[in-house]
């Protein structure tokens, strides 16, 4: 779901960059003030994992493939949506600058979609579903699915405003394909969460005890 440079006119891309910069500044403040120092290596490993998983496209039917976005996973494991903004911003910078996966002018929009919307929907979706289902893995899977499809619909609206996609076909295409890709997102998020919980249950217990 990396929007390339050619899909957004520069004036609109600048607006998305300015919005993204506000959230990047808040995320850097969260790292500086809220995140504990011993979590820094764990955050870095999650970034490496998100980078690798975003390159691994899996077929999802209808001649389409998809990959993990990672916003929900990072926000849930680290206990803050700003963790997702921090990690996804840096991953998207590496991908965009070195590998051409997502544009430079459109990086602000990509950070908003995958980092900000993905992170906030994933984080608050997780705690909302957790209060309803009482199941950590079902909640993580549900939140991850939402954190895939809602950013996709946001991207469709951005591309409609840009004149790249017509509104209804854009929403239908992005919605249907990312509803399928969201199943991959949900499965990977639940599996990775399961691995972390089985290896180090204290990591999630600490963040669940004090949601921010």
């Amino acid at each position: 779901m990396h929007i390339p440079d050619s899909f957004l006119p520069i004036p609109q891309a600048v607006v998305y960059w300015l919005i993204a910069l506000v959230f990047i500044a808040l995320a850097l403040r969260w790292v500086r003030k809220e995140m504990s120092e011993e979590k820094v290596p764990l955050v870095a490993v999650l970034a490496a994992g998100v980078f690798a998983l975003q390159a691994f496209n899996i077929p999802v039917m209808m001649g389409t493939s998809g990959h993990l976005l990672g916003g929900a996973l990072v926000a849930i494991v680290l206990g803050s949506p700003f963790a997702a903004v921090f990690v996804l911003s840096l991953v998207l910078i590496v991908q965009g600058v070195l590998f051409g996966d997502g544009g430079l002018t459109t990086m602000g929009a990509n950070i908003i979609n995958m980092g900000v919307i993905g992170g906030f929907v994933g984080y608050y979706g997780y705690y909302g579903l957790l209060s309803l289902t009482k199941s950590r893995f079902a909640s993580a899977a549900g939140a991850a699915w939402l954190a895939c499809i809602i950013p996709a619909l946001a991207a469709a609206l951005e591309l409609t405003a840009a004149g790249t996609f017509p509104l209804v076909p854009g929403l239908i295409g992005m919605g249907i394909y990312h509803a399928l890709i969201g199943v991959v997102e949900a499965a990977i998020t639940a599996v990775v969460l399961g691995l972390i919980v089985s290896a180090r249950p204290d990591i999630l217990e600490r963040v669940e005890g004090a949601p921010t």
Partner: peptide, 12 residues
Amino acid sequence: ASSDPDGLDSTA
């Protein structure tokens, strides 16, 4: 990894 287009490219 699959070489099929991703969701954004498929929609495009």
